[in-house]
Design a protein around this nucleic acid. Structure first.
Lengths: 166, 166
DNA sequence: CTTGGAAAGTCAACAAGGCTGACATAAAAT
DNA sequence: ATTTTATGTCAGCCTTGTTGACTTTCCAAG
């Protein structure tokens, strides 16, 4: 790499042009990031919105609608459209809450879990390949920068999710 | 960080759960990435699609429509709608090609450049802050992983753009 | 010089996935 | 008893993507 990213004490001497490259990298990388799931979903009745719902239901089984709403950052009308089709087609189960019967707890059915696996296998394969190509140190840095880019509320949500896993 | 990302010889011992966290980080970070420009554009007649067009026209002044099409990865009908409004509102100038008069060369007007600056200032500010928080080593890693995530064609496009700068 | 094909623009129609506003229901909380 | 919360739903709108069809312009090869 010709361009240095050096500078001590956390001070970075990056030109606007260099930062702009980071922005473009983010743009192109995100296209790659969504490409595989998009390919799988096209032809089915589902899209990226369904993928996101399935992902986070898998991630937090039994999560409530409101919970999912705040993670996804969309309106309930928007989520409901997606959720309804997933429930109708038997990918997601909606259970009335036991303590609070107003709440609906969302779970993947076997069929839903199968699609989740197919989608996340594809997406993880790409991530793994990228990680392998870039190396362990790069992966650490990747995560740190991404986390620093998030809005504070989203960062909190992300960290909450992080703790729930592993 | 409790989770190790170690492993010698480019072999990464990452569990599916750890890779999944990278995927979620990408999702949340992209929201932050687009948040500031989106805020600026809301209320104007423009959206994210306009931002992207403006960005790449600024980046490669005089680029042709076909060129832009392949960078953005949308159909000409979709781009045309965006481009038309930018031209009508005097943000973009479309010049008939000198050698090949079928081609249109796209340039930002002063007004267009002003909006471009406003948008990219906001976006760069966030990137800079993230870079500063994460440190120089992390920034290197960030770039490497992003580049490795791209589809090969997009990576080539990205690298071509990279060379044109600096 | 004619003709094939590339570059660009445009019209129409459609779909996904966002949004707002309004309203309904059930159940919890006060 | 009343208010608030969680959810669902209807209707309508916007942006941004898509396909298909058609036109104009014009370079380039026959």
């Amino acid at each position: 790499m010709a361009e240095s990213v050096g500078g001590g004490e956390g001070l970075l001497f990056l030109t606007d042009e260099q930062v702009r490259k980071g922005i473009e990298a983010m743009f192109f990388a995100y296209r790659g990031f969504t490409a595989d799931p998009d390919r799988i979903l096209e032809g089915m009745d589902y899209g990226r919105a369904h993928h996101r719902a399935i992902h986070f239901i898998h991630r937090s089984p039994g999560t409530t609608v409101n919970n999912l709403l705040s993670i996804l950052g969309v309106t309930k009308q928007s989520l409901n459209r997606v959720l309804r089709s997933l429930i109708e087609n038997g990918l997601v189960e909606s259970r009335v809450g036991r303590q609070d019967k107003r709440e609906r707890h969302l779970l993947l059915t076997a069929k839903g879990a199968a699609l989740e696996r197919e989608l996340s296998d594809a997406q993880r394969a790409r991530m793994r390949a990228a990680y392998r190509a870039a190396g362990p140190v790069a992966v650490q840095g990747f995560r740190q920068v991404l986390e620093a880019m998030m809005d504070p509320d989203l960062r909190r949500q992300f960290q909450t999710l992080k703790e729930s896993g592993t």
